[in-house]
């Protein structure tokens, strides 16, 4: 554990909490892609299958459980409790376009052709593109509430901080993971356009609005 990795985890946690609080306090999930949230829930389930077989630390286990519960809580709020506020007309990204390639790629490129390992690899590939339905939704409506922007910024920062963590681990521990690193770079690059808009608009108090 190093400071970059910890910051990444905290940014991830903050993102998840921002989203839950936004939905809970406004009693609405308008502007949020339920499809992205389903993909994140699937990602966590596939990755944390080792929760009971591979003990790392208390921190690790607790965070895994928190991420799982929070992602299921978010999906529950969107599809059950506040279903009426879910903007499904704008959430039209086809999930199979992301899930099927992630399955195929995880079967072909993995560290070891074993069940848990392939599920882990699938989760890495799926997570890297899981935000696309949300970004697609923002581009379709042409705008995002500031709270949604803060959520996306925290979520994007998480993988960017992990990249710094991987560089640190490579030099300090001689440890690297090509699959996680390449997928993490793809994931972070997907946020670049958003980061630019966030810094130039949202931080200056303006609403995130895409140029017409």
């Amino acid at each position: 554990m190093n400071v970059f990795r910890l910051s990444g985890d905290v940014a991830h946690l903050i993102a998840i909490i921002i989203l839950l609080l936004k939905i809970w306090t406004s009693r609405s999930c308008a502007g949020i892609s339920g499809k992205s949230q389903i993909l994140f829930a699937v990602t966590f389930v596939a990755r944390y299958l080792d929760l009971f077989t591979n003990y790392v630390s208390i921190y690790n286990s607790v965070m895994k459980i928190v991420y799982l519960l929070a992602s299921f809580g978010t999906v529950y709020l969107m599809y059950m409790k506040f279903k009426a506020t879910y903007d499904h007309n704008h959430d039209t990204f086809r999930l199979e376009f992301l899930i099927l390639p992630a399955i195929a790629l995880s079967l072909i490129i993995n560290h070891d052709f074993a069940v848990i390992e392939v599920f882990w690899t699938f989760s890495i590939y799926l997570e890297s593109v899981a935000i696309l339905p949300q970004l697609f939704m923002v581009s379709k409506t042409g705008e995002a509430e500031s709270i949604t922007s803060h959520y996306l910024f925290a979520l994007g920062s998480y993988r960017a901080l992990y990249i710094v963590n991987w560089i640190y681990r490579y030099y300090m521990e001689g440890f690297y993971d090509m699959i996680a690193t390449l997928a993490g770079i793809v994931q972070t690059v997907l946020y670049c356009d958003f980061f630019y808009l966030y810094i130039t608009k949202v931080l200056k108090g303006k609403k995130l609005q895409l140029p017409a």
Partner: peptide, 10 residues
């Protein structure tokens, strides 16, 4: 076997 995995990460 796996040498370069990061399964200790989240």
């Amino acid at each position: 076997s796996i040498k370069h995995n990061m399964h200790d990460e989240l």
